[in-house]
């Protein structure tokens, strides 16, 4: 059975091109051009993944759909856009897309992003159905106290930007000293080390599985310069990002 992908794009030329690429690669594709049509298609077409243009009708309607998908259902979606400014990226990160495709794009960019998103979705499901039941996962999560859980969720949501300890303290509701001590006790590392490890884990995955440049990855992870990201990566992995990519990519 073909994987169903919904393309939400109001530019007829671009949507036709994406449809052609996806048809060629064996996907079942539907196209719609507005918020209303997209919501209708969720019930009628039942997509497994959505490609979403941010600037629908020239009014950021795509982000509205992203927020809806994030809050109402568990459907993965990838944004397509010509925007690469920090403000827009920050806005879209809050809606938790699984990927981001920058215009102009190539066929390989679309397919790689989709494959990665579908792989992650499957791995997530396998994790729930295979390695452990939902109850077991809940048990795993319950080893953290509520304030620490809130802090971990905050880190997860904001991994693409600079995360300040003050913000973590604020969401936990604890005092600074108590939070840092409890975090280290429950998680096993300091908040700073945990954030650093998570960022480097994501960076390694992007270097291995995407064609994003090192500069773009640095930017995606909230680093303000290429060199600060490279230094951090060398500290973590012992090699530079470009050496890491060469080592792991064919």
């Amino acid at each position: 059975m073909k994987t169903k992908i919904l393309v939400v794009e109001d530019d007829k030329l671009v949507s036709y091109e994406i449809k052609t690429i996806l048809d060629k690669n064996g996907f079942d594709v539907n196209i719609c051009d507005s918020y209303t049509n997209c919501i209708k298609n969720l019930d009628t077409f039942k997509p497994e993944l959505i490609l979403l243009d941010i600037d629908l009708s020239k009014k950021y309607e795509g982000i509205q759909i992203g927020s809806y998908l994030n809050s109402k259902c568990d459907l993965p979606f990838i944004y397509i856009t010509g925007y690469t400014d920090i403000e827009t990226l920050k806005r879209i990160q809050t809606t938790k897309p699984v990927g981001y495709l920058s215009k102009p794009f190539r066929e390989i960019d679309i397919i790689n992003n989709i494959e990665l998103a579908l792989y992650n979705k499957k791995a997530k499901l396998d994790g729930i159905n295979g390695n452990g039941t939902t109850a077991e996962l809940e048990l795993e999560e319950s080893k953290y106290s509520k304030p620490i859980k809130r802090a971990l969720e905050y880190i997860d949501t904001n991994i693409n930007q600079e995360i300040k300890t003050e913000e973590l303290i604020r969401v936990s509701g604890w005092s600074k000293f108590h939070f840092i001590r409890e975090f280290a006790k429950e998680v096993g590392v300091t908040p700073y080390q945990y954030i650093f490890d998570q960022k480097m884990k994501l960076a390694s995955s992007k270097l291995k599985n995407t064609y994003q440049s090192v500069k773009e990855i640095a930017f995606d992870l909230g680093y303000t310069s290429n060199s600060s990201f490279t230094n951090a990566f060398v500290k973590h992995s012992g090699v530079s990002p470009s050496h890491f990519r060469k080592k792991y990519c064919r």
Binding site: D11, V14, Y16, I21, G82, D85, S102, K103, F105
Partner: peptide, 16 residues
């Protein structure tokens, strides 16, 4: 942003 969209149109036309 506009320029990148226009470049996308050029690429799309060639692929279509």
């Amino acid at each position: 942003h506009r320029f990148k969209n226009n470049l996308q149109t050029q690429l799309s036309l060639m692929n279509i």
